[in-house]
Nucleic acid binder design. Structure first.
Lengths: 220, 220
DNA sequence: GACGTTTTAGACAATGGTGTCTAATTTTAC
DNA sequence: GTAAAATTAGACACCATTGTCTAAAACGTC
């Protein structure tokens, strides 16, 4: 379901305790349906059916549709955040081949943060409902696209400090790195398809090659 | 596809003749509302009100909601296309300062194709309704993000042929150029704000600087 | 001014959604 | 095994929306 073969927390469920299976099931189904249909187009009946749960149960757990929606968004954001930091921690402390390491990193990032179900959900929902629920996605957009921006900037700062990169503005570089990785994937992700592993690797290669041409520290 | 040679109204209206002001007014209002609310969330009543037209008139011109929606999408795509080629034609045949020319070009592109109302509409609607109406946006995604990709690739091929750029894959370079320009604007455009002219210029500068570091032909 | 067309407001049925309620049934906890 | 809690199906009122229909009004053109 979650298309991740990485070390990952299983379905994190935000801040509520008392997490019977139903509750989680509803959250997952709701994410699916909200993502497919948008807020207005999604019906509680459809969500209940997809969760294999009666409609009343949905109302028991989440008072109303809007409430369910915010719960879903928060849940997905939590999970996406956990995933992001899990992936960031995989970057080697002392890279031996910067290009390869960055490419592998980019592949993991795009596979598990951008092209997966949660990434698609967030992109789509921020786009279509972001203006209607500004408070909901505030934290998302506050830290650039999903906090990835600032975390990446920190990573690049570390690499620059080690003399591996030559960067004047870390934030700009981070945004550009993400943008480059996305460049070859946009076609696929926009339409909704999940790119193959080969596409991911090719996109990462292209991105890293260009990024390093622009930002690699001149050979000593 | 039959382009009428009747005097073209400032808002292009695709393929129908008999373009009374009402028809255009409805198209514009519908674009607004569909963009704000998505397909499911938009109501004909709201569109009619925004167009200052009775609901019946909407139904007279466009049989049903879905029909109106496709008409709007086609209209916006036509207009966006025209705008794109108009902008492409502004790039100087023999650039005297590549960085400045590219930056100015990027500003025009982002201002008039990406950050404007039509760009926002297309991005949002492709994202949220693209899977539901794959045929509608096929041409959009066929040629990369809105045909800009292939057109840009051709431009870069020309510049490479003149010895100003050194590019191995023009399509990749085109996608990356667009991605870089977007990198600094995503935050704003995702949320729905229209960036100021300064932001546009700064984004273009950042994008072009990185792009040229990666792709500028080595000085002769 | 007359005539055909377009537009309008409003009523209308049909549909589908939300959220509530109830009473029966299942699950869980003790 | 029993009591409490959770879940279920179904009916329900309420509301918004789509799309149709009608008869009156406005419009444009000759």
């Amino acid at each position: 379901m979650k298309s991740s073969n990485e070390p990952v927390p299983k379905t994190s469920v935000h801040s509520q305790r008392g997490q019977c299976a139903k509750r989680i099931s509803i959250l997952e189904a709701a994410a699916e349906v909200f993502c497919r249909q948008g807020f207005a187009g999604a019906s509680i009946d459809e969500i209940a059916a997809e969760a294999c749960v009666s409609r009343q149960t949905v109302y028991n757990h989440y008072r109303e549709k809007e409430n369910l929606f915010t719960a879903v968004v928060e849940d997905v954001m939590d999970r996406a955040n956990a995933m992001l930091f899990s992936i960031l921690s995989t970057f080697p402390e002392n890279p031996d081949n910067l290009e390869d390491d960055l490419a592998a990193f980019a592949v993991r990032l795009s596979r598990n943060c951008i092209c997966n179900q949660d990434g698609k959900f967030l992109r789509r929902l921020v786009q279509s409902e972001g203006e209607r629920y500004p408070h909901l996605f505030e934290s998302w957009r506050r830290h650039g696209p999903g906090k990835i921006g600032t975390a990446l900037a920190a990573l690049f700062a570390r690499l620059a400090h080690k003399g591996l990169l030559k960067i004047d503005d870390f934030d700009v570089a981070a945004r550009q790195f993400l943008a480059l990785v996305n460049a070859d994937l946009q076609m696929s992700t926009l339409f909704g398809a999940t790119p193959s592993e080969e596409e991911l690797e090719s996109a990462a290669r292209n991105a890293v090659r260009t990024f390093l041409r622009a930002y690699a520290a001149p050979a000593a």
